[in-house]
């Protein structure tokens, strides 16, 4: 799994925490050519979601104008200890996911 997730390990109840998520992915536009001018086929992650305790707290529709290795940072209010789950879905239907725990006191 090639993802980098940054969630604070601990937070106070009611605190706003920043979440950063990045995944290794070429976000290939389909417009580029490789060696000998052979077109590189399009390969795009078109949906990202982040859930906490089974409830979606952030999502994004992504397009080819996102950089390679797409990076997203957003915020949430820490309410209770639990697990964030992250999913990235390719246009071809494949999904990758990752998780991160937070302890809220």
């Amino acid at each position: 799994m090639r993802t980098l997730i940054n969630v604070p390990k601990t937070a106070n109840k009611g605190e706003i925490v920043e979440i950063r998520a990045m995944i290794a992915h070429p976000m290939e536009t389909g417009y580029r050519t490789g060696e000998n001018g052979v077109p590189i086929p399009r390969r795009i992650i078109h949906r990202f979601t982040c859930s906490f305790a089974g409830r979606e707290i952030f999502a994004a529709d992504l397009f080819p104008a996102m950089s390679a290795n797409p990076f997203l940072a957003f915020t949430t209010i820490a309410t209770q200890s639990g697990s964030f789950t992250f999913t990235w879905t390719d246009e071809d239907g494949t999904t990758q996911s990752a998780a991160a725990e937070i302890t809220v006191t």
């Binding site: 706003i16 536009t29 979606e56 707290i57 994004a60 996102m66 957003f74």
Partner: peptide, 30 residues
């Protein structure tokens, strides 16, 4: 959205109450 890429869309972010702030950061291609 962008003005002069081959396609205008970059991203659409979906936010929810409880986010604390309406703030999103990312990296795009221009």
């Amino acid at each position: 959205f962008n003005e002069r890429n081959p396609q205008p869309d970059i991203a659409v972010f979906h936010l929810f109450p409880g986010a604390g702030r309406a703030e999103v950061a990312t990296r795009m291609r221009l």
